[in-house]
Design a protein around this nucleic acid. Structure first.
Length: 309
DNA sequence: ATGACGATTAACTACGCAGG
DNA sequence: CCTGCGTAGTTAATCGTCAT
């Protein structure tokens, strides 16, 4: 495994219209990117218009949204040329990680490469090192998919540069990434407020571990309320679903990025996750045997139930 | 075996929020 | 403006049970 030395954030602007357009026809018209060197922390930029196959003038809607003119793309290079320049600009692909905000952009890259007969091997190295950072961010921090602007706002940051300019979109996505991966306490606080505390915002000054413990106890109590050691397979499935939701709610605590969670809370969440996995195993076993009744072993339930006691 | 009844599932709808 | 995706709430179809 080669070492990762740089992060490449990229974004496409594409054809679009007020009347709507099938995704296949939304050819890319501009590619922007921001490259972050991990060692030097230096950022370099890429911004190129792309001439689409389709020669119709841009829709008013598209011009207003992207601030791109017919002339910009008429005088631009075609997709394969821009892609080549992009790859040249990237430099060492094997030492790069690629990110975009939503999976839209990687699909676009693949689709346009395909329609221009660019060999799969050319974009494969990018795809293999690519992650949808919006998906990561919503799983680990914000719960729902926010816009770039709203994700920045969670960290108290503002969008810099022009919106719908893909170079700036990419740059601002990078800024989210840097905040996400450097500001551990903020990241965990946002996560707590998004996933767990919802309307009653929490700050570092609060007794977070104490409040977590209370909430976790409540949730577990609720979970076990109508569950007995022996129950039918249906209510077991319900339990499975509800437990899964609880796991999603609390699992990011285990990352303990900020180190703000104490051993007790970490243990509780670990027990919850363990219970969930045991539950899945037990459920599948019973289900495959065609059992109508499921019996939970004590070693499965007692550790968690002791918390609520 | 049949039909009534409640429970459970799926399918559909509506909404909000992303993307261009 | 449109599409896409995920969630939540509703409805409709299906299933299981039980009494007849």
């Amino acid at each position: 495994m080669t070492e990762v030395r740089q992060f490449v954030f990229f974004d496409f602007e594409m054809l679009c219209s007020k009347e709507g357009m099938s995704y296949a026809n939304m050819e890319s018209i501009r590619l922007g990117a921001a490259k972050y060197d991990i060692d030097t922390q230096k950022i370099t930029y890429f911004d190129r218009f792309i001439k689409p196959k389709q020669t119709e003038p841009l829709s008013i809607f598209c011009k207003e949204l992207t601030q791109i003119s017919d002339n910009d793309i008429a005088s631009a290079d075609s997709f394969p040329l821009v892609l080549d320049d992009f790859i040249k600009w990237i430099g060492n692909i094997k030492q790069s990680r690629f990110f975009s905000w939503s999976s839209n952009d990687i699909s676009r890259l693949e689709l346009d490469a395909f329609s221009h007969d660019v060999p799969r091997s050319k974009i494969a190295p990018i795809k293999n090192r690519y992650v949808d950072f919006q998906a990561i961010f919503s799983k680990r921090v914000s719960k729902t998919n926010p816009s770039v602007e709203n994700a920045l706002a969670l960290y108290g940051l503002q969008f810099e540069g022009d919106k719908h300019n893909p170079m700036y979109d990419a740059y601002n996505t990078l800024r989210i990434y840097l905040a996400f991966s450097e500001e551990f306490v903020k990241t965990d606080l946002i996560m707590l407020n998004q996933f767990i505390f919802q309307n009653q915002e929490v700050t570092v000054e609060d007794d977070i571990n104490g409040r977590l413990k209370t909430l976790l106890k409540e949730d577990l109590q609720h979970l076990f309320n109508d569950i007995s050691i022996i129950s039918n397979i249906r209510s077991a499935k319900k339990l499975l679903k509800r437990t899964g939701k609880l796991v999603k709610k609390y699992e990011n605590i285990l990352l303990n990025r900020s180190r703000m969670f104490n051993e007790e809370i970490l243990l509780y969440v670990r027990l919850l996750v363990d219970f969930y996995h045991n539950l899945i195993g037990s459920y599948n076993k019973h289900y495959s045997y065609g059992c109508k009744i499921i019996i939970f072993h004590e070693h499965m339930t007692t550790p968690l139930q002791q918390i609520t006691a």
